[in-house]
Amino acid sequence: MNIVNFTPYSALTGGIIIGFAVAIFFYFNGRLVGISGIASNALTEERNRLDNILFLIGLIIGPIIYTLFKQEQISISISNSYLLLMFAGLLVGIGTRISGGCTSGHGISGIGRFSVRSIVATITFMIVGIITVYLKNNL
């Protein structure tokens, strides 16, 4: 194992900001942030639909506001084929709905209130993610 590209300060700062977003949503609206839940409920459920859609719009305009203030472009790199990305998207959509959460719902909101169920989910998807990346890089 080599440690590369490690950015502890920006990671911790960004994480703290995410933690505040989750706390604000809970304090005012009484709901826990779980983005797979918010997104799928925006699609399939009548209840809280406008709130869910507004949260998703916020997620998209957050980066836009950031670039306006910082005057810097966000660059991301994705090196997958279209087909692989679509397959991955399908797995993420189906998997998070069957398990009831993703990195935010189980990983932050769930672990944050010491839910054993969420700890089990997070360990499981992290181990499978690590195995998947290992196989992808070594096959």
Binding site: I35, L59, F87, V92, T103, S104, R117, F125, V128, G129
Partner: peptide, 29 residues
């Protein structure tokens, strides 16, 4: 369900490096 779902999610996450939050935010780009 918790385990099967997390396995499917972990596989998709490892294939693309995207989970729901960052994926939706990156629509901005």
């Amino acid at each position: 369900q918790l385990i099967y779902g997390s396995v499917l999610f972990g596989a998709g996450w490892g294939l693309a490096g995207l989970c729901p939050g960052p994926a939706i935010s990156s629509l901005a780009l």
